[in-house]
Design a protein around this nucleic acid. Structure first.
Length: 413
RNA sequence: GUGAGUGUAGUUCAGCGGUUAGAGCACUGGAUUGUGGAUCCAGUUGUCGGGGGUUCAAAUCCCCUCACUCACCCCA
């Protein structure tokens, strides 16, 4: 084989593409009922767009970015996530000035230079939604509702929607100190990773899987007890509203997000059946990001949904493969031409028709069967001469004589 | 970036020092000279991932490399 796809990339072929289409159009349909409109932004940005927003020390920036220098000596990065480019685009185009409260969705490829594994690729796809300009927790609830409506519409069950609040720039540092103080005296018992986390991101110790660390963190402080009054109230209204709307959720105080820009509400939808990479959607509130991009003070919340992970969940409930309405088997030149014109008439009116062109009738029938054609029209020299041909119902095997001129009309409805 | 496992036909896999490398599925043709799916018969398909080494002899053993898979870190 001469060429292979780049490591961590994947070709998506039928019938899988049918699932992708189904997912994308269902998402667009649901988002639209919540007032979200599509935005399309470039797949690459100036590197700073990501380093400044996601956080210089986050893993994404430190080791996972597809960064290169272009011919104009600019540092360019293939987007590792969608939120930062969207915010950049909205600020640049002055959207917040005219429409301070607006909602957008996007779908497309993202890139992260990671070691591929189940549910993780270097080029992967996300469907994301971002709502700006409203800091009311009821919007947070609606976002979660939108997500559950979508998952529901897709027929997905057994998903757990986990929510948490990580506070704001005022109360989070206090919590962080409390956590550090708690683990300071237990440092020796922690695993090597957690000792590192103690310095870089102590909140991560809370979801370490090493048994010793799990034991040591018993009685550790919870974020929810350290929220300031405003953040606590925000979270309370969120959970109350979710209960009111009937959105199922579980509060998970250890839920931490990897990106620096999150404030207050964070959430994640996990599927038990997916293996190690089990988050199918995740997001949160990011009230300071727009300002950091030079826009007006604009609170915001959004999420991204992992398309590959979703598709693997949807694989069992795959939509049935599309089938041609009519297959036209042709024997001989004049018949082949006649077949082509009948097929072309059908296609013009939106009906899928296939032609057999040439070969033995047997092989053409086989192809008709393989394609799942509902009917097959058999045309040979005699039929061209008489103007009548056999129309075979592939399921019942019944055949009837039909005029070639009416054959096409028969399938146009 | 770290660790483990696996690379043989289009695909799933067998063969694990000894002729000319196999099977199922798929594909093509035939049994049925113009009628599909089932059955039967026949046929096609391979740099045994790549490179180097050991050996009389390597798909098989050793080393390197690349790719894939799974897990860790982290994340959608």
């Amino acid at each position: 084989m001469k060429y292979k796809g780049v490591k961590g990339t994947r070709d998506i072929l039928p019938p899988e593409t049918d699932i992708w289409r189904h997912l994308e159009s269902t998402a667009a349909g649901v988002f639209q009922t919540f007032g979200f409109r599509e935005i399309r932004v470039p797949v690459m940005e100036e590197t700073q767009v990501f380093t400044r927003s996601i956080g210089e020390t986050s893993d994404i920036v430190e080791k996972e970015m597809y960064t290169f220098t272009d011919r104009g000596n600019r540092s360019v990065t293939l987007r590792p996530e969608g939120t930062a480019p969207v915010v950049r685009a909205l600020v640049q185009n002055g959207v917040f000035v005219e429409h301070p409260a607006s909602k957008f969705f996007y779908m497309g490829p993202m890139f992260r230079y990671e070691r591929p594994q189940a549910g993780r690729y270097r080029q992967f796809h996300q469907i994301g939604a971002e709502a700006f300009g409203i800091d009311d927790p009821r919007l947070d609830a609606e976002i979660l509702l939108m997500l559950t409506v979508l998952l529901d519409k897709l027929g997905l069950k057994n998903l757990d929607c986990q929510i948490n609040s990580i506070g704001c720039p005022q109360c989070r540092p206090r919590f962080r100190e409390a956590v550090k103080a708690f683990f300071a005296e237990r440092l020796d018992g922690l695993c090597a990773d957690c000792k590192r986390r103690y310095e870089t991101n102590p909140l991560r110790i809370m979801d370490c899987k090493v048994p010793a660390c799990v034991e040591l963190r018993a009685g550790a402080p919870s974020v929810l007890d350290h929220l300031d009054e405003a953040c606590a109230a925000h979270f309370r209204t969120l959970t109350d509203t979710l209960a009111h709307l009937g959105v199922p959720f579980t509060v998970k105080p250890t839920l931490v997000r990897g990106l620096d820009y999150y404030t207050r509400t964070t959430f994640e939808v996990v599927a038990g059946s997916l293996g190690a990479q089990n988050a199918v959607a995740a997001g949160g509130r990011y009230d300071k990001l727009v300002e950091e991009f030079g826009g007006p003070k604009t609170p915001a919340i959004g999420f991204a949904l992992g398309v590959e992970r979703m598709v693997s969940l949807l694989a069992e409930t795959a939509p049935p493969a599309p089938r041609p309405a009519l297959f036209i088997a042709a024997l001989g030149e004049p018949a082949a031409l006649r077949a082509l014109s009948i097929a072309s008439a059908l296609r013009k009116s939106g009906v899928w028709a296939e032609c057999g062109y040439s070969g033995s009738l047997k092989s053409q029938m086989r192809r008709a069967d393989k394609l799942g054609a509902r009917f097959t029209l058999i045309i040979g020299d005699e039929e061209v001469a008489s103007g009548f041909a056999q129309l075979r119902n592939m399921e019942t095997k019944e055949q009837e004589l039909i005029g070639l001129d009416e054959a096409a009309k028969r399938f146009m409805d």
